[in-house]
Nucleic acid binder design. Structure first.
Lengths: 341, 341
DNA sequence: TCAAAAAATTTACGCACGTAAACTTTTTTA
DNA sequence: TAAAAAAGTTTACGTGCGTAAATTTTTTGA
């Protein structure tokens, strides 16, 4: 490593004994130059550790190598995991991902669109807030920037949608619960932020009726992204009022289930399938911590890998020039049997 | 909103009837132009919705308005929360934060330093991995970019360090546990990634001895960032081998405690202070989900607000030109009494 | 009202790179 | 080994903005 400081590509080209246009070509695509010159550049790179000024690069390229990744709420480990997987895929393909969180706030989400526009990204992968999202703003954004939506469906916005097959999730779980014990009632938020919740409710009703049972829904008041708190406090109330019409409770998602487990514990209700257990509780999503609840939560695992990969692949192929019409992909979940149900 | 598309500051200046240098001055500091011209610009801004090209801006400014925020592991909600709070502080002060996660990987962490260097940030707030971090690389980075470390202390690197007062955390908890029941043994990872863990162990020993009790430490094998899993699997083993020498277990942090609670549940050990409870378990950190464990976890709350604000304030004042010598600030925690101990 | 101060304008250069065109050198292929 | 193809060089312009200096216009204050 030499002490000489390289200030720009001109100096670096001189140091490696080449012209600037050639070096520029190398940085845009190392394979586009002759093997021998590539070696010379990489040798000089070792020696001087120069990197092109990203601001100058991005100013002059029509399209940057940036990719925006938006999730609705990064404090939710489910979205943190999505963000991480997608981030990795982008890097592996030579793109620079930037992760943004809407922090549960629709206005902030709309603001992120402007922030991303300024980045002039090659594409965006976005899990919208859902019902609260500014649909029109997102639609305008999608017209400007290639965008693939995931997790939460929003009309037919964007190039494509990739997310969980929610009806299949709930079908799988209801079916399992009915086979192994009393048919479940359904515990959910009254006004869910996320369209997935509505699909799960619908699927619950349909599956129950198909199996010849009467669906029973307990809706919890409260809004926002503090799902555990809602599951806990509204769960307590429901236990007090004996609102759960069944000894089996299927929650709309794991985070609500986590809160409900706490409520059940406080009420002295033993949860699980063992003899002596009063109720069964199941969730949906396979939250990273569901394995460590007491008892561990029976749930449906999202196929994070498949969802993130397919969303990324669609975006990537469009960026690389592929044509496509709007497409939706629904990824099946897997039943995770643990002690709670 | 006019349909005319403004391509650059030149056109925008023309549209607002001003010269480009004046408009440029406005964007660098709206207060630096006369009230009347400011109004004219903002009027045009409403009409044409122009934003300066950030790449051109950053290329020409000596210093950008970017701030890098690095956490060791974003899947850990504790760090997700830090990141969010700091992000908000940056935005409120007119800076553009970018959040990075080392994903628990020292090499990735070192790579982030290069990524951030390319951003030419005005400053960086970093919670390092700890023991596994490349100290020399971070030292070199700190020489180039104003950096404040938080959460995890690393020699005397950076402008300052702001983090939890770990000895106080443990003192507070040990004291409480001794006052209210059997003196605790200490459950921790044998080779903790984070220096905080060592300080907590040390403080545990000192406090126990001060109170006239014999310290007893149970070290769990395993490494990495899957703390819950380590607490769970090693906790099971410890219960089997009756390795815990006390009916009270103080865990090095909440995530280990969460795993241990699961192990205790599986072993049929009732946790808490009620009659009929076999053991007490306590954690440290006040993890966002500790409120919803079964039973809810007694712990020490980090003062997230204070730590993030102080770290940011130090960085901000240095960016704005203040001189300062290396400083360390240790923020006290608060005892959170819940049902587990 | 008039000079001083403040604010804007004009003009010009710099930043670090992408990229195109015309040309020269090197490599490949027959 | 010569011609064709490929790769590299030179030259030159464009990108969108920061910023400095000299000048002009507007505002302020006595």
């Amino acid at each position: 490593m030499s002490d000489v400081k390289i200030r720009n590509m001109e100096e670096f080209a001189a140091a490696s004994g080449l012209s600037r246009p050639t070096v520029s070509k190398y940085f845009n695509d190392p394979a586009s130059v002759r093997r021998s010159t590539r070696d010379r550049i990489e040798e000089a790179l070792e020696k001087y550790d120069y990197r092109p000024n990203i601001y100058a690069v991005n100013q002059n390229r029509k399209l940057t190598k940036n990719i925006g990744v938006v999730v609705p709420y990064l404090l939710d480990p489910v979205f943190a995991e999505f963000a991480r997987k997608i981030e990795r895929l982008c890097i592996e393909s030579g793109y620079s991902p930037t992760v943004f969180s809407a922090h549960g706030d629709p206005e902030h989400e709309t603001g992120l669109l402007d922030t991303m526009r300024a980045l002039k990204p090659a594409g965006v992968l976005m899990a919208p807030l859902g019902r609260a999202s500014d649909h029109n703003a997102i639609e305008r954004f999608c017209a400007d920037v290639p965008t693939v939506l995931f997790d939460s469906e929003l009309r037919d916005l964007g190039l494509a949608f990739v997310g969980a097959d929610n009806p299949q999730f709930t079908r799988l779980m209801v079916d399992y619960l009915c086979r192994t014990g009393p048919p479940p009632c359904f515990f959910e938020m009254k006004t869910p932020a996320n369209p997935n919740a509505r699909k799960r409710r619908k699927s619950y009703i349909e599956t129950m009726e198909m199996l010849g049972h009467t669906p029973q829904i307990v809706s919890a008041a409260g809004s926002g992204w503090g799902f555990e708190e809602i599951g806990y406090s509204e769960g307590l109330k429901a236990f007090d009022q004996k609102a759960f019409g069944s000894a089996t409770i299927l929650c709309s998602n794991d985070r609500i289930a986590i809160g409900l487990l706490t409520a059940a514990y406080q009420k002295g209700l033993r949860v699980g399938t063992d003899t002596g257990c009063a109720i069964r509780i199941a969730g949906q999503d396979d939250h990273p911590f569901s394995r460590y609840t007491c008892p561990p939560l029976t749930t449906i695992a999202q196929d994070f890998d498949s969802i993130s990969r397919q969303a990324f692949d669609i975006l990537f192929s469009v960026i690389e020039g592929a044509e496509m019409s709007h497409e939706k992909r629904f990824i099946e979940g897997r039943l995770i049997m643990r002690a709670s149900a």
